[in-house]
Design a binder for these strands. Sequence first.
DNA 1: GTGAAAATGAAAGTCAATTTCAAAAAGCAA
DNA 2: TTGCTTTTTGAAATTGACTTTCATTTTCAC
Lengths: 153, 153
Amino acid sequence: MKVNFKKQNRLKEFSKDKSKIGLKNSQKRTLIIEYFLHEDKHFSVEELYNEIKKISSEISYSTVYRTLKLLTTCGLADECNFDDGITRFEPVHKAQHHDHLICKRCGKIIEFKNNEIEKLQQDVAKKYKFSIKFHRLALYGLCSECKKKQRGN
Amino acid sequence: MKVNFKKQNRLKEFSKDKSKIGLKNSQKRTLIIEYFLHEDKHFSVEELYNEIKKISSEISYSTVYRTLKLLTTCGLADECNFDDGITRFEPVHKAQHHDHLICKRCGKIIEFKNNEIEKLQQDVAKKYKFSIKFHRLALYGLCSECKKKQRGN
DNA sequence: GTGAAAATGAAAGTCAATTTCAAAAAGCAA
DNA sequence: TTGCTTTTTGAAATTGACTTTCATTTTCAC
């Protein structure tokens, strides 16, 4: 498992905070956190649980669930909803907010960032004297590969 | 209950289709549909059920639920999710797609439309060779009234 | 090591959404 | 109108993802 510097720092941060907020250093939790932060993917609890199980069969669904919620509370993970009733978690990239393209055929999730859209959102908010705390933008459709496949059919 | 022309037409359309797809003309369903289409609001099943109950106490939650699902299938209603785990339904305005501003304090839902944002979404899609079938954009925050109240506190 | 506090797993509970099924209503045909 | 078939309905049960409970295990400061 390749460890990238930024992510290691995030994990270290997490470790530093732990004592302050009364957390103990659990091996299982650490394994889950490392796996989750190093994989740059969107995981449902179920999905992460299934992958973790392969590495360490002694980790329960509850622990995976609780760890993801904990990371969310600590600001190291974000919860996403993509219209299928399943909550997914993604590692927070502190540097940049982003939105999502979701392929309805293969389920692929692509992240994108568009400053112009964000600016226009602020314009909309201003028009309605509204202050935006956060937003969700998801574009649903077909990714390039699935488009090719569909033509083939 | 004021009936606007466009909505009456939509209802008529619905009625026309009914026989073709094997639906019978139920009084209760008709009442629910009329109420839903004439109120230009976002309803959860629960909310619509509570309002309908006041008019006709003999209509059950199941019927309201099934009617809203039916309207969605027929393309006369859309399902929305605003990050609170509750599905809301809105009458489809055939003329225009729109997005939402949601006040996290009072729950108010404001609809808006911004062609520039839509255009930029297409640009994003093109960049990733993605074809968009539909999208969801929701801006969460505080509406003008709630901002005022908050200052007052 | 000992003891207090936190973490864990399995099972139970929650809650909105959805389905089931027996009874009621709709509507076609005689 | 009556009889018959199909659809609709209400109440209750079920589903499925999420969340909590609680007895047991692990952590860690002393």
